[in-house]
């Protein structure tokens, strides 16, 4: 479980997040929605320690994550799939996965087998350089690389960005089944609000750094004002 309390993050004089508070429950998907510049990516980067907050706390169960190094936060079991996927193009698929498995106390061969079973196309292309994969395959690789370490929390930043609708639907299905079959806590940042709300249990809507909605995903999805003014979902 991730508990964010009164989190404020600034870039110089500009406040990117203003007193943000919410809870991401264990084994649930929490969607963080909002337009460009709402502060969604900054939120994930702050949880991962890539950005230092001005004030507030981020707790994983009872441990405060603020002021910890990114690599230490990762070692606590937080997997972060960054915007743009962050696969290392000059590494092969398998080298990317080996890198993901390195810090976790997992059996490499078993971890690789599990990920190739989950994402068969990665098994077929294990010796290929990641730069040669399609957008969807890169997204799968980025997720597999985070999952191979068996994280307890998975931060996904715009996983559907640049993907075809069919690939996005498959991806969302994968995220949902991961959550259903394990205790994985997922914080899913998305601009594609309708896809995210379809699989999320809880939704937080950000608008210029402030929380404007924090409720069950079904409630947010049914709120006409939120849909129209903050999520750009017009019937």
């Amino acid at each position: 479980m991730i508990t964010i309390d009164d989190l404020t993050v600034s870039f110089g004089a500009v406040q990117a997040l203003r007193s943000v508070s919410f809870v991401a429950e264990t084994a649930k998907i929490t969607a963080v929605l909002g337009a460009n510049g709402a502060g969604k990516t900054t939120l994930l980067r702050t949880i991962s320690g890539l950005k230092e907050p001005r004030s507030g706390t981020i707790r994983m169960d009872e441990r405060n994550l603020v002021h910890r190094r990114t690599e230490d936060i990762a070692r606590l079991g937080i997997g972060h799939v960054p915007e743009g996927r962050g696969v290392i193009g000059e590494f092969t698929v398998e080298e990317n996965l080996r890198l993901g498995a390195m810090m976790a106390k997992v059996n490499l061969q078993q971890g690789l087998s599990e990920q190739y079973e989950q994402f068969p196309v990665l098994g077929e292309r294990r010796r290929q350089h990641a730069a040669k994969l399609s957008g969807g395959e890169r997204q799968m690789l980025a997720m597999a690389r985070a999952l191979i370490a068996k994280p307890s929390v998975l931060l996904l930043d715009e996983p559907s960005l640049g993907l075809a609708p069919l690939v996005t639907a498959q991806l969302m299905h994968t995220i949902q089944s991961l959550c259903d079959t394990s205790d994985l806590t997922v914080i899913l940042v998305e601009q594609n609000a309708s896809s995210a709300l379809r699989i999320a249990h809880h939704a937080v809507v950000l608008h210029v750094g402030k929380v404007v909605a924090n409720d069950a995903a079904s409630v947010v999805a049914a709120d006409e004002n939120l849909r129209q003014y903050y999520l750009g979902l017009v019937e």
């Binding site: 990114t70 690599e71 972060h80 962050g86 390195m102 810090m103 976790a104």
Partner: peptide, 12 residues
Amino acid sequence: VAPEVSRLLGVR
């Protein structure tokens, strides 16, 4: 080649 991604994967 990718220091930020490496840190996100726990590499010191």
